[in-house]
Amino acid sequence: MQKFRQAVEARDEEAIAALLAEDVVFTSPVAFTPYPGKAVTAAILRAVLRVFEDFNYVRDITDVNGRDSALIFQAVVSGKQVTGCDFLHVDDEGLIDEFTVMVRPLSAAVAVSEAMAKQFDRIQHEAAAAPTHLSEN
């Protein structure tokens, strides 16, 4: 998922959102219930760009069909070193329809949870304000 990696590393919010399917499901490392939909997923990823410092991908593992990728990253959140992985699945159009994140160690997961909780009202507001359908062409 080279395009996604490049968009994140460039901190290009529009390019990131353009790679998300309308029916994408985001599974957080710190929330039990997945978040369905492009608007909320894009809002969460914008919050991640605000919260995660020194973010960089260190490895990209993609299956032979190019449909499933694991992007291993490192970052700092609230002074804690975070190692994590974005698991991405793309649909027939090449858009991300499944997005699962895992982080370690536990102290970093707690830091991520606390930092993202502070973003939650803004995430909800941004997701609610987003158009219900965006044309990406």
Rank of each mutant, 00 (worst) to 15 (best):
T100Y: 09
L106A: 10
H89L: 09
A111D: 07
Y35R: 13
T62P: 00
H89M: 10
A31T: 10
I123R: 06
V112M: 11
Y35S: 13
F99W: 14
F32R: 13
M102I: 10
E53Q: 15
M102C: 09
G94L: 01
L20I: 00
S113Q: 14
A75Q: 05
V90H: 07
A21V: 03
A18C: 08
A47L: 02
K80S: 03
L20G: 05
P36C: 06
V112K: 02
A108K: 01
T41F: 03
F120G: 09
A31K: 14
V77W: 01
L95W: 08
L71T: 02
G84E: 07
V51A: 05
H125L: 12
D97A: 09
Q119G: 01
A117W: 08
D54I: 01
F73D: 00
L45M: 12
V90N: 05
E98K: 15
R46H: 07
T27A: 10
V51W: 02
M102L: 13
V101I: 12
I61P: 01
T62F: 01
L71R: 05
D63A: 01
A75L: 06
H89E: 14
Q119D: 05
H89R: 15
F26V: 02
I123V: 10
H125A: 14
D54H: 13
F26D: 02
V82S: 07
Y57D: 03
S78N: 10
E126Y: 06
V103G: 12
I72M: 10
V30E: 02
F87R: 04
P34C: 05
Q74P: 02
V112P: 04
D63V: 00
H125N: 13
V82W: 08
A127W: 08
V58C: 07
D60G: 11
H125F: 11
V51G: 00
T100I: 11
A43M: 04
V90D: 04
V24N: 10
G94C: 04
P29C: 03
G37V: 04
K118L: 11
V24D: 06
A31F: 13
V25T: 14
C85T: 08
N65M: 10
A70V: 00
A127E: 09
V30Q: 03
A18W: 05
P105Y: 04
A117M: 13
P29M: 02
M102G: 07
P34I: 03
D68V: 12
L49E: 09
V110I: 13
Q74C: 10
V76D: 09
L88I: 09
A75T: 10
V40F: 07
F32E: 14
R59Y: 09
D91T: 10
E93L: 13
V110Q: 11
F99N: 04
D91W: 10
V103R: 03
L45Q: 10
G37Y: 06
